[in-house]
Write a protein that binds this DNA or RNA. Structure first.
Length: 419
RNA sequence: GUGAGUGUAGCUCAGUUGGCAGAGCAUCGGGUUGUGGCCCCGGCGGUCGAGGGUUCAAGUCCCUUCACUCACCCCA
């Protein structure tokens, strides 16, 4: 039996793995600069956590969850997390932070699981990097989230389009929802089947329906229903974004269906990754902490699809190159090679000691294959002189270098190459 | 869940009206006793996705099935 990976799951190695790591490292560094700290939470939770936070009628909960009954506790159904926010909110409430110290700034990174049909930029296990900020209801926090995503865009050299919208708050959002509901009822006969089915329980989804585009265009707009506070909040967010140089467009059809989503909502869209083009999305969820049993604390956050974002990057940029490949000819040379390699690694150099017992020709080919900048050759002649042959593989030149000078020589060469 | 496309060597693919299973790359070795890339020679490598049918003969035609890819759907 030939073992095969599961559908929609990936084995990732080489430059692709380094690309994902680069995205995650870059996002971490940005979060830390914004004084956001890591929270590590479980990949497995009780199913009802996701049902209560993502909504029992959402597709994610209804048909995309990896859920199963815990083997010894038949009354407990568990699920692999399909997103990060519910777990972070659960942890926040469980630690009592909503009461003791409500203002918290968290980021998380790790695998999420959804049993969807795979396609470009969509896998059943995928990595998300997310930020959740609690206890801040101000517009500056909403803007800061998008500024963080924009910093990531800049540092990775990506093109992203930001779309934003405001859904209103507890005061004005219900009026808007009611207006969309009545609009939908008035055009019931023209709606697609999906929209008709979910109209009563989730009318806002009509607005981002791709079938009923025409109807959505002339549907009520959240902008027209915002109360004074929400209008001011949204204006401030846009002002702060403009100040920070974050280009964005207002998309009145950008919505979230669930009631605890409030005010600002946004997506960052890439033109380079196929149909699954939203590489980051987020917004304000002032009702969520309370909905999960905590105190009424404001919350806002975003998540980045790491795999999706990496698709927009050229993996070759992140390929690994060894600084030195050491070819040892003979047992005595091998022992010398091992200790020299340790010294080089001590200076932070990337070093591979090549397979002993093979011909120099094969070893040189390996050195070339792994992209090594230098080959270090140690044979009987070099051993006798306490030296090594140092070959510059790009220039095809070589010199003899004393063993004790090797580390300094290579470290200097690398520093020069980086300058 | 729905639709379309594609399955032949490790990878990328060719394979004509049905007639011996192929190429390039990769890998290993040789040309060069201690020198990579370029070049030349050679070795290894196949259940043609799987099962059934038609035929003297099927990679090729038919049926079934599985997998992969992209899109729909959905989505931080």
């Amino acid at each position: 039996m030939q073992p095969r990976r599961l559908r929609g799951f990936q084995d990732i190695a080489g430059a692709q793995a380094r690309t994902l790591a680069a995205v995650e490292d870059c996002a971490r560094a940005i979060a830390e600069r914004h004084n956001v700290s890591e929270i590590r939470i479980p990949a497995l939770e009780r199913l009802d956590l996701f049902q209560h936070s993502s909504g029992e009628t959402s597709d994610i909960v209804e048909k995309q969850m990896y859920a199963f009954v815990d083997r010894d506790e038949a009354e407990t159904t568990l699920a692999l997390r399909p997103e990060g926010t519910p777990g972070v909110v659960r942890a926040y409430i469980e630690a009592g932070m909503d009461r003791s110290e409500p203002e918290q700034r968290f980021y998380y990174v790790g695998p999420m699981f959804r049993r969807e049909r795979p396609q470009k930029g969509r896998f059943r296990q995928f990595s998300q990097f997310g930020v959740e900020i609690f206890g801040r209801a101000d517009a500056a926090t909403d803007a800061e989230l998008m500024i963080m995503v924009d910093e990531l865009r800049r540092e990775l050299g990506l093109e992203l389009n930001f779309e934003i919208n405001s859904l209103g708050d507890g005061e004005c959002r219900p009026r808007f929802r009611q207006a969309v509901l009545e609009y939908g009822r008035a055009h019931l006969g023209e709606l697609c089947e999906d929209c008709r089915n979910r109209l009563e329980r989730n009318p806002l989804r009509l607005l981002d329906c791709k079938i009923d585009v025409k109807l959505a265009e002339s549907a009520p707009r959240s902008q027209d229903y915002l109360c004074e506070h929400c209008r001011a909040h949204f204006a401030t967010v846009r002002e702060l974004l403009a100040d920070a140089g974050v280009a964005h467009t207002v998309n009145p059809r950008l919505v979230r269906g669930l009631d605890y989503y409030t005010r600002t909502t946004f997506e960052a869209i890439s033109i380079a990754v196929g149909a699954q083009s939203a590489v980051a999305a987020g917004g304000r969820y002032d009702g969520l902490v309370e909905a999960l049993g905590g105190a009424p604390v404001a919350g806002t956050g975003f998540a980045i699809g790491v795999d999706r974002l990496a698709l927009a990057l050229d993996a070759a940029r992140f390929a690994a190159h060894a600084d030195a490949a050491i070819a040892a000819l003979g047992d005595a040379a091998l022992r010398r090679a091992m200790s020299l390699a340790t010294a080089l690694r001590g200076r932070g150099l990337r070093v591979e000691v090549l397979a002993p017992g093979r011909g120099l020709k094969a070893l040189m080919r390996r050195a070339d294959r792994i992209g090594a900048r230098y080959a270090v050759i140690i044979g009987d002649d070099e051993l006798a002189r306490g030296a090594v042959t140092l070959r510059d593989l790009a220039a095809s030149t070589q010199t003899e270098v004393a063993e004790r000078d090797l580390a300094a020589t290579l470290a200097a060469a690398r520093a020069a190459a980086r300058a």
